[in-house]
Amino acid sequence: MNSTNDMLDGIMSVIGQFDFSQVKERLFSLTIEKSRLISLLELLRQSGFSHLSLITGIDRIAEEKFEVAYTLFSWQSGVTVMTSVFTDRIDPVLPTIMEVWPVARFYERDVHEFFGIVFDGNPDLRPLILENWDGIPPMRKDFDSLKYSKEHFPDREYRADFLAEGSDGDE
């Protein structure tokens, strides 16, 4: 168990540099500045958080901000760190972290598609999941899914032969 404690001490000395809070035993959350994003993530990666679990977009509409959370995991100590960075809601741009974790390319593409956040330096921000999407990015809080659905898939008038549709020419 000693080595685990040593590892935790090591991790605390790294995390301690940031504005952090402990959510539970092996889960920490910290907020970092946008301008130092890449250098701090690189530092965390070198301190053992070698695994990028997830990049999450969160629309903080009340504060006029987007939060992007990078969830990192250390396989050696079992500690997870949720690293948050904030950006303006209007014209949101963040640097890409593809250099640190190449797989970030796809997580960023996903966040771009659903929140409209641009990741500067990511060459591939094409739509990933949605097809022919013409609304605002759908995971934003001001996107009204019911309204969009009513506009794009209008109600059809009921007809008595509704179910027979498609069976034309069967007989």
Partner: peptide, 15 residues
């Protein structure tokens, strides 16, 4: 609050 929870699924980390 924000929280991340994960388990080992048959395919790997699921969270």
């Amino acid at each position: 609050g924000s929280v991340y929870s994960h388990v080992e699924s048959s395919r790997g980390e699921y969270g």
